[in-house]
């Protein structure tokens, strides 16, 4: 289990959630804290972007074109894919100017 700050960038991040069974602590109106994510999307995908880091020049286009915000930088400013949010759409692979991303079959079911 990864720590929350590693699976997503703030302010949106996965936090533990337990549905209340008490009216006293039910939301006061149909509202909730923005960016509070209760569930991972990891079981949505059937493809996974495998990134070839050696030749990566950190151009950031894979981060830019991800509709999920699922790609972030690691400590060496290389792109890492967050497994909670990647849906395997392949846009990062399509946009990588050096063709360093390969979409490989993967499911989490």
């Amino acid at each position: 289990m990864k720590k929350p700050e590693e699976v997503s960038n703030p302010p949106c991040h996965l936090r533990p959630f337990k549905r209340s069974t008490s009216l006293a602590i039910w939301p006061n109106s149909p509202q909730a804290d923005s960016g509070h994510l209760a569930f991972s999307n990891k079981d949505w995908r059937n493809m996974w972007p495998q990134i070839e880091w050696q030749a990566c020049n950190s151009c950031s286009l894979c981060l830019l074109f991800c509709p999920e915000g699922a790609i972030s930088w690691n400590a060496n400013r290389l792109p890492i894919v967050q497994e909670d949010w990647c849906k395997g759409c392949g846009l990062c692979a399509r946009e990588c100017p050096k063709n360093l991303i390969a979409m490989i079959p993967q499911t989490h079911r």
């Binding site: 302010p11 149909p30 509202q31 909730a32 804290d33 923005s34």
Partner: peptide
């Protein structure tokens, strides 16, 4: 200080 999502789906 604590952004809110309003008028949400349930």
């Amino acid at each position: 200080s604590k952004p809110q999502s309003l008028a949400i789906t349930a």
